[in-house]
Design a protein around this nucleic acid. Structure first.
Lengths: 209, 209
DNA sequence: AGCGAACAGTACCGTACGGTACGCTACGAG
DNA sequence: CTCGTAGCGTACCGTACGGTACTGTTCGCT
């Protein structure tokens, strides 16, 4: 821990964390470099030295938050592909999924990217590919395996993956998009959404009998 | 070019239309009052006379776009509550729904409200209530009637209404949120999403037999 | 004709913000 | 000790933007 001398990286992280916070709160245009510097306990020169102009700083920070964004969801999928009890496992996946997704740390970034996707189209695309699309691809691959094993009946795996994720997450996610990140959902409510979503999904995609 | 003397309302509308366009393109902070004035063919004085400061202008314009926002969807529901052929009608509703929802004129406002919901929390709430929540309430009431008539089996009508609308619209809506309003979906693709959504919904909520 | 409201055009004010320059301190390596 | 690197703090520059004042003009009304 008291590793004393990482000269560069530490300052860099401090700036990125502080800047992200300011960008999340005020948006790209509303964020002021002076405030970022103050919040980071750094000087503006240092920021410009490390990241170049404001646009570049913004892109680097958001892009940085995107690496591995799908990992938590991939993890949430767990042993889905290899289970024998699809219903139980899928419900568990849905629950882990919705709890992970409704973390403010995730939804605030999501809203920021949506807000700035006009000014930074690349960021919008990058988020979409690194997040939803990756998750849907992984989920679709699970569904294919389960279909192959006769446990599900799915013709269009990617479409089904979309159905599953949006069924699970749309209610809380959309509410937060419009009503702010300070909304907290009781865990029981999230569980209820997850269970209901899994129920609907299985009604449509479970093998009959 | 001969001016035909406008009674205030016409100037007002010209300003509101131009300002909305600029706000949609640049966001609240990015929009410049000078540019709004130029785009409206009006002078800044006139704008301030009619709407007061920038914040007030923004709120009035967005609020104005919210009245009746649910009407197109209510209309899309048509004779849903009184039909005897739930499957056919529901599929038709889903198609009308997704085509109405994916109009750029709607999605651009949606994105703007999300983007500014931090700075203007009231607008976020107002949008959510005037849009999704109203639609869900109306849809839920249809579902209750259909359940009463034994054509559907729905315990939680509002939850089911959420399932239906998000099942139908989530794929294109979310894509546009991240990838920009210039994305156009082939009508056949939208129809496919609508049909698949109706299928999933009915599998879960149709009365057995 | 004459009055007043509505409006365009433009100049203007104050301030705030992105970005840079400069001078200073602290520290690790040789 | 000395030099190079990383960083802080502050002052500074140019510009741009929200908002106002002022002037002149068009139009409706009486």
């Amino acid at each position: 821990m008291p590793h004393a001398a990482p000269p560069h990286a530490q300052t860099r992280r401090r700036i990125m964390d502080a800047a992200l916070e300011v960008f999340l709160r005020d948006g790209y245009v509303g964020a002021k470099t002076d405030e970022i510097a103050t919040a980071a306990g750094a000087s503006k020169q240092t920021i410009y030295k490390h990241f170049g102009p404001k646009e570049s700083l913004f892109e680097q920070i958001v892009l940085d938050r995107l690496v591995g964004i799908d990992q938590i969801f991939q993890n949430a999928m767990g042993e889905l592909a290899t289970t024998d009890d699809v219903e139980t496992t899928l419900r568990a996946v849905a629950r882990r999924f919705i709890h992970a997704l409704t973390q403010p740390s995730h939804l605030r970034v999501r809203r920021l990217v949506i807000a700035e996707s006009g000014r930074f189209p690349k960021l919008g695309h990058a988020y979409f590919e690194a997040g939803p699309e990756r998750v849907h691809a992984a989920l679709a691959s699970c569904f294919e395996q389960l279909t192959g094993r006769g446990l599900l009946k799915i013709d269009e795996p990617v479409l089904a993956a979309n159905h599953f994720t949006w069924l699970v997450s749309s209610i809380p996610v959309n509410k937060v998009m419009f009503c702010g990140d300070d909304i907290r959902f009781p865990p029981s409510e999230l569980d209820h959404y997850a269970d209901a979503a899994a129920h609907v999904f299985l009604a449509a995609y479970r093998t009959p009998g």
